[in-house]
Amino acid sequence: MEVDAAKAIGAGLAMIGVIGPGIGIGVLVQGALNAIGRNPDASGQITTNMILGIAFAEAVAIYALVVSLIILFVL
């Protein structure tokens, strides 16, 4: 039982790592929206690059998620 509890706590703690990417994605989208507001013609390219940037930021969040999944189901 104690091991289960420790696993749950550990998985929860691992997900703290999602804070950073969350802020990062927010900043990214803010920048992209600002840019689109200034230059609506370039919105296509900006959106593509924004999604790429989000993917990079999100990858970090996914690492945290994978760690917590491993703690929960593999360890």
Partner: peptide, 9 residues
């Protein structure tokens, strides 16, 4: 991991 994590989650 990006693909796996997103889809599994």
């Amino acid at each position: 991991f990006r693909l796996f994590g997103n889809l599994f989650a």
